Amino acid sequence: MTVLRSSLLFALAALAEIGGAWLVWQGVREERGPWWVAAGLVSLACYGFVATLQPEANFGRVLAAYGGVFVAGSLAWAMVADGFRPDRWDVGGALLCLLGVLAIMYGPRG
Rank of each mutant, 00 (worst) to 15 (best):
93 G>K: 07
64 A>M: 03
81 A>F: 10
64 A>F: 01
75 L>H: 08
38 A>S: 15
23 L>S: 11
62 V>F: 02
94 A>Y: 11
7 S>D: 08
60 G>E: 13
41 L>T: 03
15 L>K: 01
9 L>M: 00
58 N>W: 08
27 G>C: 11
55 P>C: 08
63 L>K: 00
98 L>C: 07
25 W>C: 11
22 W>Y: 06
101 V>L: 04
110 G>E: 13
109 R>M: 14
62 V>H: 02
83 G>Y: 14
16 A>Q: 06
99 L>N: 12
106 Y>D: 04
77 W>M: 09
36 W>V: 06
100 G>K: 07
39 A>L: 15
18 I>F: 06
81 A>I: 09
98 L>I: 14
81 A>K: 09
97 C>N: 14
35 W>I: 15
48 G>W: 02
92 G>S: 08
97 C>E: 12
49 F>G: 00
86 P>K: 15
47 Y>V: 00
87 D>K: 05
27 G>P: 08
21 A>M: 08
40 G>K: 05
5 R>C: 03
109 R>P: 11
55 P>K: 11
87 D>A: 06
61 R>L: 12
71 V>D: 03
38 A>C: 13
89 W>A: 11
23 L>C: 15
5 R>V: 11
22 W>G: 00
5 R>S: 04
20 G>T: 07
56 E>K: 05
18 I>K: 03
28 V>R: 03
22 W>M: 02
53 L>C: 02
9 L>T: 03
36 W>Y: 14
9 L>N: 01
101 V>H: 02
12 L>W: 07
110 G>N: 14
90 D>L: 09
108 P>H: 14
57 A>H: 14
34 P>S: 05
108 P>R: 15
102 L>P: 00
97 C>H: 12
